[in-house]
Design a protein around this nucleic acid. Structure first.
Length: 316
DNA sequence: ACCCAGGACTGAT
DNA sequence: ATCAGTCATGGG
């Protein structure tokens, strides 16, 4: 079980120290975009960058990373350290809710992950909690991945999962998602759909192509575009984000349709609305005071600022 | 026991 | 084109 089937060539250990630009690892790695990082007792995170195992942690203003074959370019791209975060923030609208969300975790960033694993993670995300998606990711690695050591396994590629059976996938707690993941693996392994080609398409074309994959609808496609293909303008609306939009932005219109929420987000949150979405998502899931019951919310809703987000005047 | 979870697919209108 | 029903499973 050790040694002969290692997928990792024997690369030299690399230790990096990069300027973190305010990156908050804890917020970023617990914000429901990646599912393979685990925090050790020492607060350091063990996970994967470009298919290689590594250890990352914050040290003052530095982001430290250690792992075999690691490059500063890989770490920089993965954590989005090259992106103009000040410009992203200044592009946000004047919006008290978004301000609260951003203040709650200003170091939250959007990762640029591998498309295949991200595709699998979000196919498995349907009606699953984040802790369960992490469990499924771990299970898929243990059962189908290559062993780096006893408890560390790479994520299986599409051709590997395509050789499995739906029943064996189902054993990884996948439930009804087993068929989706199985068919998706075959679609990718057979090159019926090319994840590499999608990188060169426009966002709308890429979304259309991703939705040809079994188990990928609009929301999952948007998550893949945002968290793997670096498209900051997509705004995934899951049950939590929909809840925020309804309660905080459309309080006066309880029957507003999903389509209207999508159109509002497109026009309201600016060109980096994917980041706005992620701040809102992380805020409502981790701040117990973010979403309070409706009647109290109405009482404590900010009123002073006249430039508050328009709560969708009159559903047209 | 009950409700919910980073939804997608299907078949009936 | 919209719309309810259905799909497994585990956490709280």
């Amino acid at each position: 079980m050790t040694g002969d089937s290692l997928s990792q060539p024997d690369l030299p250990q690399v230790s990096l120290s990069l300027f973190s630009h305010g990156l908050d690892l804890d917020a970023t790695l617990t914000s429901g975009q990646s599912f393979s990082w685990r925090r050790g007792m020492d607060g350091r995170w063990r996970g994967w960058i470009e298919g290689r195992p590594c250890l990352v942690w914050s040290q003052g203003d530095a982001l430290r990373a250690v792992g075999p074959g690691l490059t500063s370019a890989a770490v920089t791209t993965y954590f989005g350290l090259e992106l103009p975060i000040r410009e992203i923030f200044s592009s946000f609208p004047n919006d008290p809710w978004l301000d609260k969300a951003r203040t709650f975790a200003p170091g939250l960033r959007i990762l640029r992950q591998e498309p295949w694993e991200t595709l699998c993670n979000f196919i498995c995300s349907s009606l699953k909690q984040i802790v369960q998606i992490k469990q499924i990711n771990h299970e898929l690695r243990q059962v189908f991945g290559d062993a780096i050591d006893e408890s560390l396994h790479s994520f299986p590629d599409a051709s590997r999962l395509a050789l499995a059976t739906e029943a064996r996938l189902r054993d990884c707690r996948l439930g009804f998602r087993a068929r989706h993941l199985f068919v998706a693996s075959q679609q990718i392994a057979s090159s019926e759909i090319s994840l590499e080609r999608i990188a060169g398409l426009s966002t709308s074309e890429a979304r259309e192509e991703l939705m040809r994959v079994q188990g990928v609808g609009e929301k999952v496609a948007n998550c893949i575009l945002l968290f793997a293909y670096g498209r900051p303008e997509v705004f995934p609306i899951d049950v939590w984000v929909e809840r925020v939009l309804r309660r905080l932005y459309f309080h006066d219109n309880p029957r507003v349709k999903h389509e209207k929420l999508r159109d509002f987000a497109e026009s309201h949150f600016g060109p980096y609305r994917g980041y706005a979405q992620q701040f809102l998502f992380h805020w409502i899931r981790h701040d117990s005071k973010a979403l309070i019951p409706e009647k109290k919310a109405a009482a404590s809703r900010p009123r002073k600022k006249s430039s508050a987000p328009k709560p969708a005047q009159k559903a047209g």
